[in-house]
Design a protein around this nucleic acid. Structure first.
Lengths: 224, 224
DNA sequence: CCGTCGACCTGACGCGGTGTCAGGTCCATG
DNA sequence: CATGGACCTGACACCGCGTCAGGTCGACGG
């Protein structure tokens, strides 16, 4: 699994469709197109997002769009890459938490909150990432992986540590536990509003997740 | 939330595009189109699934397809409805399990297994259901809801019962716990192969989920 | 066995979105 | 202010959608 780490996309070797290196004006147009893509995603389903519409919204023509992106997917991909640079937000919480007692439980709550906040902020793009990943698009899957990989590793490490201390029985596989917890966090954050619609309060969901996190990591009853 | 319960679709009042009630031959064509849709979904991403292709595969013309379905979505919707009739598979396990000791843990394992099996069997259709739901399509969301609602209710009830017996602290909201657990099951089952790809064994994932289920429901340490 | 009628199918078409050129416009620079 | 490269776009060929009007098929009565 040796792949390039996620890094600030290098503006220096951006290329337009014809191989040109875009100048000031060109980059401005590209950025405008990206912004319009992001905006339109907020109100339009991905499947209905047309190049024509993005171009019109950006006050330019479809042909210009193709100057900078091979297709709509490529544009969203850039937005997704930008977003995935924030991957550290999750892992840091896990690493900065002392997983004991009240302290650990607070960390669990913080992690759940961070997921809610992150999904709230990036909902439109995340929707597409999830969508495309599920359709088998490797590029989006990679992004999704990078976004969550740090966290999965951090959780794996903490669980492995506590298992070495004898807190977890033999049949517990730290990476499997981490994967399941991350899945839970991502899916619940994505469906938060769906749950609210069914009368399930976000705050109760947060508590439920925090307790599961705390217990799964520490093997101890969460404090009230 | 008073809606019609999911029930065998009534073949008696099927209508073709022009309002006709189809006869033997017509229904055969319709079925053939559905089968081809299901088959093509196995190998084609939903976004690339064209009416032309389904029609050709079924040895007929696009116009015929529109005779029976307003669009591809509608055809998949029928497949999804068919699938959702199996919703009882999950809830029954929860209801038939005595949530105590070894017995309860076996129930948790069985529930995880059932999710894996169900997702395995219905992967192509479920992919579309998840996709369309995330895109905000109400019809698919309804199906997804019906599919998982029984289970969510069954889990809610069990947790509420055990909470009434004093096993769970006050801050535990049974329906939130149930929703989180169902989310976990669904998401992990959907990404099972993705996890295997990262070297995480399905069996370990199963154990991790079963332990979380058992603990979340009973508030007790799972047996080895 | 044959004609007939209604159920069933499809060829042909207008529409709208895609992606690609060749050629036009703009502006920084000398 | 002229000029050349960076930037844009009109126009077009292509493709899939969805809709007719009209053609085909086969079950059934005679």
């Amino acid at each position: 699994m040796a792949a390039a780490p996620p890094t600030e996309p290098d503006d220096a070797d951006l290329r337009a469709a014809d191989g040109r290196v875009p100048g000031r004006r060109g980059r401005a147009t590209r950025t405008r197109l990206l912004e319009c893509t992001r905006d339109m995603l907020r109100t339009t389903s991905y499947r209905d997002l047309k190049v024509v519409d993005i171009a019109r919204e950006a006050g330019t023509s479809p042909a210009t769009f193709y100057q900078y992106f091979p297709d709509v997917e490529a544009a969203v991909l850039v937005l997704a890459e930008e977003m995935s640079l924030q991957h550290f937000r999750f892992a840091n919480i896990v690493r900065d938490t002392k997983w004991r007692g009240r302290n650990g439980y607070d960390g669990a709550c913080a992690l759940a909150d961070e997921f809610f906040a992150f999904w709230e902020e990036n909902q439109p793009v995340l929707r597409v990432v999830d969508l495309a990943t599920e359709e088998g698009d490797g590029r989006f899957r990679t992004i999704r992986t990078w976004l969550l990989n740090d966290l999965t590793n951090a959780l794996t490490e903490v669980v492995a540590q506590l298992k070495a201390e004898g807190r977890h029985p033999d049949e517990v596989d730290p990476s499997a536990v981490a994967a399941v917890l991350v899945s839970m966090l991502a899916h619940v954050a994505a469906h938060r509003y769906g749950l609210e619609f069914w009368g399930i309060r976000t705050n109760d969901v947060r508590t439920a997740m925090a307790r599961i996190l705390y217990w799964s990591i520490t093997a101890q009853k969460p404090p009230s």
